[in-house]
Design a protein around this nucleic acid. Structure first.
Length: 599
RNA sequence: GCUGGUGUAGCUCAGUUGGCAGAGCAAAUCUUUCGUAAAGAUUAGGUCGUGAGUUCGAUCCUCACCACCAGCUCCA
């Protein structure tokens, strides 16, 4: 069932099927567990779910049983028809049945005539606006996927219900293809590839959510660090360095503390002082800003730092490199003189983000999308109260997105407590979306920190701050990039860029020479001098996604050449050492997306 | 943190209805010196996530804890 007011919108057949499958799921559950209580059951992106309160604890193994029951119902070709019932009768009926969640939902539905859908000859009835398919046999191929807990109405203060996820497709073939796609996607999972390529590890002894980077993984980080810092310098950012720890008072002053308390590590106490591992950089940068009087001539002041941050995330939220407890954010705070400047700076950040995504080969709409995260005027606990400031700030960011011709969607209640933000959302390999980069408009911190400047007219004026990250935190962007490239990084990011393979022992000396020449040019090169056959070493280089493999033997020594093999391609033939090196260095410098020897 | 699941060699996974723990890959050594995706042999590698309990005996059963996975909540 769904409370979405979408009765006049054309709903695609597949969505109707899935929504109807949710009804069938509820019917199947009730026939097996008559005492189960029903929550809601909508169609979702790749399927559907229904929330239940079961009379007893249930685990995975019920899925098969319920699925069998569902298939029986689908086979029986039962009709799904809309009907309207009088509110009073509905309330009484649900009270009698003890369907407390349905009663709760009823409170949010207006009118006396309540829409229901009846399955078959009154076999199952659910409060619902529809639309649905006309008969259960139209539902197609279904599969129940998993069982999980979900708080009633998405609020962790409410009871946790049991959510059953499933999916439905027009045909068994489509369903199988979907399941196959999921399996394929799992092969690109950054945790899997990270392990296979030896990029990072976790240690139970070090602690959860605290990644350890191997030399290979650290090479990727280093390249990204250099990349972003150079870009920022070119755009007038000033890089600073501030401590990863600060007195508790700092976060009380910034106002972060009450909002962030739960996700901060416990204080480190020293006599009567409390120090906190920092979960954000902002207040440090603000204190730096305050270290001397500022003039309008100093603004916009772009204070940047590769900042190591610590957030004590709830254990269940940790996920590979995408959610960790210690991470490095490419952070910056742009102190702006006024709203005009803030807008132009926000626009500048969008330019920077687009420059970066282009280098990675990511496309707007396909690989990432913009979200305008708004505040919620009613939620004074979560969002600093100042309706005018919110309105202005939200409109400012909206204008920036429009001017930059960014497609975006808006989400109420996703803002920071100090202002709205533009989030750049990316999906992981299994479709789960996370914020990769962010641009935040802050009208609160300037007030709290007295971030002022002397204007042209000699007056002391209040600044506006843009918080931003154009490449996000290194852990997360690397996770996305691993999945996006499936481990086959562009040469500039590859932990090992070139591997040299001597055909036999007598070619070892020449291979070493080649390696040294590349090494001297800062190329990340390895020599495979293991006692193995050429084919084995070629395979190993391919499996390790190394962009260039140089094979050297008699032929190459005679002609001062190397045989170049490009990742994923066959032998590209003999190339003069210098020609290859020149090409390689150019490719690295220009950050070409994939290795190639050109036409 | 909550709901459900999983945990066996460095990796991928078998297996034991409670009775000496298994394979492939990777590693090491030897043979081989090889022309573009896996040569052959040998060796080593394990408190079966941790700790209690039940039992003559626990990797297997029970409980607690830890870590990981999916989802919820939260979020860069």
């Amino acid at each position: 069932m769904s409370n979405q007011n979408n009765k006049n919108i054309d709903v695609p057949q597949i969505e109707k099927m899935r929504h109807s499958a949710a009804h069938v799921l509820a019917q199947a559950v009730l026939s097996l567990y008559p005492e189960a209580k029903l929550g809601i059951g909508p169609a979702i992106e790749d399927g559907f779910y229904y929330d239940f309160e079961f009379p007893t604890q249930v685990s995975d193994d019920v899925l098969q049983k319920i699925e069998k029951e569902m298939k029986k119902i689908i086979k029986r070709d039962l009709s799904l028809k809309q009907t309207f019932k009088d509110r009073k009768g509905v309330v009484e009926r649900y009270k009698a049945l003890g369907q407390e969640y349905k009663l709760d939902l009823l409170n949010n539905i207006e009118g006396d005539e309540i829409s229901f859908y009846v399955t078959g000859d009154d076999e199952f009835i659910d409060m619902c606006r529809g639309p649905h398919v006309s008969s259960t046999k139209e539902i197609g191929a279904i599969k129940l996927l998993r069982i999980a807990g979900a708080y009633w109405k998405g609020d962790e203060k409410n009871k946790m219900l049991t959510r059953i996820y499933g999916t439905a497709f027009e045909s068994k073939k489509d369903l199988d293809e979907y399941l196959e796609r999921i399996e394929e996607a799992k092969k690109r999972d950054h945790r899997k590839i990270g392990k296979e390529l030896g990029l990072f590890v976790f240690s139970e002894t070090v602690g959860k959510g605290l990644p350890l980077w191997t030399p290979k993984g650290a090479a990727i980080r280093r390249e990204l660090e250099r990349f972003i810092v150079d870009l920022e310098i070119a755009r007038g950012y000033q890089h600073v360095s501030t401590p990863e720890i600060a007195r508790l008072q700092l976060y009380e002053k910034s106002g972060h503390y009450p909002y962030y308390k739960d996700s901060m590590y416990a204080p480190i106490e020293d006599e009567d002082e409390k120090f906190m591992l920092r979960p954000m950089t902002c207040p440090h940068h603000f204190e730096l800003y305050l270290s001397e009087p500022r003039s309008y001539r100093d603004l916009p002041m772009r204070i940047a730092e590769l900042a190591k941050l610590f957030r004590y995330e709830q254990s269940g939220e940790l996920s590979g490199l995408i959610r960790v407890r210690s991470f490095c954010l490419s952070d910056a705070h742009i102190v702006c003189a006024n709203a005009e400047q803030a807008k132009s700076e926000a626009a500048g950040v969008i330019d920077l983000i687009q420059e970066i995504t282009e280098v990675f080969g990511l496309k707007m709409g396909e690989n990432y999308r913009f979200k305008l995260s708004l505040g919620d005027r009613k939620d004074e606990k979560k969002f600093y109260k100042n309706d005018n400031a919110w309105d202005e700030a939200e409109e400012a960011l909206r204008e920036v997105l429009k001017n930059k011709e960014c497609e975006y969607y808006e989400e109420e209640g996703d803002a920071a407590f100090y202002g709205p933000k533009i989030d750049i959302q990316m999906r992981n390999v299994l479709g789960k979306e996370e914020t990769a980069f962010t641009i935040q408009y802050d009208f609160v911190m300037p007030e709290r920190f007295d971030l002022n400047y002397v204007d042209q007219d000699g007056e002391l004026k209040k600044a506006i701050v843009i918080h931003r990250s154009a490449i996000g935190c290194l852990e997360r962007i690397i996770a996305f990039l691993i999945e996006y490239y499936a481990g086959a990084f562009p040469t500039w990011l590859s932990p090992i860029q070139v591997r040299v393979i001597p055909i036999s022992e007598k070619h070892l000396e020449y291979a070493q020479e080649i390696k040294q020449e590349l090494w001297d040019k800062q190329v990340r090169v390895e020599l495979d001098d293991r006692n193995e056959r050429l084919q084995y070493k070629i395979r190993d280089a391919e499996v390790n996604k190394i962009p260039y493999t140089l094979v050297v033997g008699d032929k190459e020594i005679e002609t001062s050449t190397v045989s170049v093999r490009v990742r994923g391609k066959k032998d590209q033939g003999l190339h003069k050492k210098d020609t290859f090196l020149k090409h390689l260095l150019k490719e690295i410098k220009e950050k070409d997306i994939s290795p190639s020897l050109g036409a």
